[in-house]
């Protein structure tokens, strides 16, 4: 066999995928051919170097969070987070079907985003646990919107999206980072959706929707017209994107 034919088998040899007879003929060739031997060694060095880079250990928080998340969704009471029972959704079913969508604030500092995200998740869970989902329970946008008058220094726009599959349930005043935020609650099939809106830095430019993940929830956050929004959910991202598109007054992105 020619050198070129041999060289085509270098990788399969390196990866242990050659038949025994091919392996033997390649080894014989390498022993007698300097050029091929050099080339093969270069390939092997690369492979060894990469293997030596090796593993990064996952942060300890990851394993902890996975275990906690698993207990939550398997309906065990080891943690206080069995909020879907309070909602009457799922009632002991395997999977927490309640969906939380939060439109909240975007932090411009990446390092601050995690803590905002944490606080949003915590705020949501808290609102479920004390059965305090809404301050004003109404599907009428003309009832919910004026309820915020005098409670916030901005007027959040409130739209019922029942005809798009996301009926408005009500509104609530909440606090994130010690700042009052508007919380709008929507529903999608069996899923509850919390929407939080905060006044952002008015001089900051608009930011397009950006998705992140936290404790099994999906979040989508954006900034528009001086207001910060964030969306969090365990619903599939496609549906969340659709809702984000509706709330941002844009067409849903094509999938």
């Amino acid at each position: 066999m020619s050198c070129e034919e041999m060289q085509h088998k270098f990788e399969a040899y390196l990866d242990g995928e050659l038949t025994l007879s091919d392996q033997r003929s390649l080894e014989e060739h390498l022993a007698g051919c300097n050029r091929c031997n050099t080339m093969y060694n270069s390939l092997r060095t690369l492979s060894v170097s990469i293997k030596n880079i090796g593993y990064t250990h996952a942060p300890a928080s990851l394993r902890r969070n996975i275990k906690r998340g698993l207990k939550e969704i398997s309906g065990e009471h080891a943690d206080a987070f069995h909020w879907y029972h309070l909602l009457g959704v799922g009632g002991g079913s395997a999977i927490a079907t309640a969906v939380v969508v939060w439109l909240v604030m975007i932090s411009t500092l990446p390092s601050a985003q995690t803590s905002v995200t944490d606080e949003l998740v915590a705020a949501h869970v808290r609102s479920m646990m004390v059965s305090h989902l809404t301050d004003v329970a109404s599907s009428d946008q003309h009832t919910v919107k004026p309820w915020f008058n005098g409670k916030l220094d901005f007027a959040p726009s409130v739209r019922d999206l029942r005809d798009r599959g996301y009926p408005l349930v009500g509104g609530r005043l909440d606090y994130v980072h010690q700042q009052p935020v508007a919380a709008l609650i929507y529903q999608h099939r069996a899923h509850v959706i919390n929407v939080f809106i905060r006044r952002g830095d008015t001089v900051a430019q608009a930011l397009p929707p950006r998705a992140t993940h936290q404790l099994g929830y999906n979040l989508i956050r954006w900034r528009d017209a001086g207001l910060d929004y964030a969306l969090v959910s365990d619903l599939n991202e496609k549906d969340l994107q659709e809702l984000a598109g509706l709330l941002a007054g844009q067409p849903a992105p094509k999938s």
Binding site: Y55, T56, H57, A58, P59, L62, R63, I66, K67, L70, K71, I73, S74, G75, E76, S93, A94, I95
Partner: peptide, 23 residues
């Protein structure tokens, strides 16, 4: 329907892969 047993079985089989998953 998931219960404690399912969860424990899942953890036993899958949690060992969390380092590989992270990498």
């Amino acid at each position: 329907m998931a219960n404690k047993k399912d969860r424990q079985r899942f953890e036993r089989l899958m949690l060992v892969h969390h380092d590989a998953a992270y990498n």
